[in-house]
Design a protein around this nucleic acid. Structure first.
Lengths: 149, 149
DNA sequence: TACGTTCTTTTGACATGTCACAGAGACCTG
DNA sequence: CAGGTCTCTGTGACATGTCAAAAGAACGTA
């Protein structure tokens, strides 16, 4: 039996602070976005789709790019299709595949929400960080996120 | 009509990196915890309850402390009570109130999971940060989390 | 070509969170 | 102290995520 090594005071404070950030920031951005008519997840799907020429992605590629499970994306896409934001069609090159693409309405919805969302990210995060802090945050975030799953 | 001010390259990279952290880190910690038999939320409830002498909290106070909605806590507590981790009783001082407290089984479950969770936090975060980075992270997180809702 | 295996999407059952509201108790004021 | 109002918890309807499995298509090989 080895003794559990607890957190020292510095670690404890940092971890508590980060936990607060981890819950508060996404919640706030999500609320702002909801006020603009989209959930965070809706926005994520729309903006990722729009990054590709023709606004077209296969489910599998899109799910990998977004780091979502395929099941999750399939469910979510079904709901978004019902609202007319995206459409799905069979992949002509692979009978198993499914191609998702933005509708015009979906693109307009994204365009309408984007400036407000950007503003929200600034007000709730970027405006409060110096250039140095921005750099450190990027370095830390990348290193941690890049660790193996 | 004012022009939307988009993110510059530094801001864009930092924000993307942070977004990856915001999704990946909680997901990983949650998976580790699940392997130990508790969801993240279960762990949060148990550990917060255990912080108070007698392991007793009123729903309202506990919800505020955890920054959860009362409804959410009520639902979750009902499920945890069904599993024998906590118990609820009417508040003798306020007929509307409800007092939650850990059961022995709940406390033992928490004790059993805590070392593994701590280890997970180290492996997936703390071990990869220098003391300086730890300090910057705390400063940034606190500042952002402390912004008004 | 025929077979078994692997891959891909969808679906259903279930866990969890949000929102609005019901019901009961506490509080305030004339 | 009576009536209206506020506060608190729990509940029901619904949105969203996970997991396991079904159904069909593609692939590899004898």
């Amino acid at each position: 039996m080895t003794e559990t090594r607890w957190l020292d005071a510095d670690e404890e404070r940092s971890w508590r602070a980060l936990r607060r950030l981890l819950t508060a920031l996404p919640a706030r951005l999500g609320r702002d976005l909801t006020a603009l008519g989209l959930s965070s997840t809706d926005y994520e799907v729309l903006s990722t789709l729009s990054e590709r020429d023709g606004w077209r992605w296969g489910l599998k590629d899109l799910a990998r790019k977004m780091e979502w499970s395929r099941s999750r994306l399939s469910h979510h896409a079904a709901r978004m299709e019902a609202r007319g934001l995206i459409e799905r069609e069979p992949d002509p090159d692979d009978g198993r595949g499914s191609i998702y693409h933005l509708t015009d309405a979906g693109f307009r919805t994204l365009e309408a929400a984007a400036p407000g969302h950007l503003d929200s990210v600034r007000r709730r995060l970027l405006d409060h960080l110096s250039r140095d802090e921005l750099a450190v945050l990027e370095r830390i975030s990348t290193r941690i996120a890049d660790l193996p799953d």
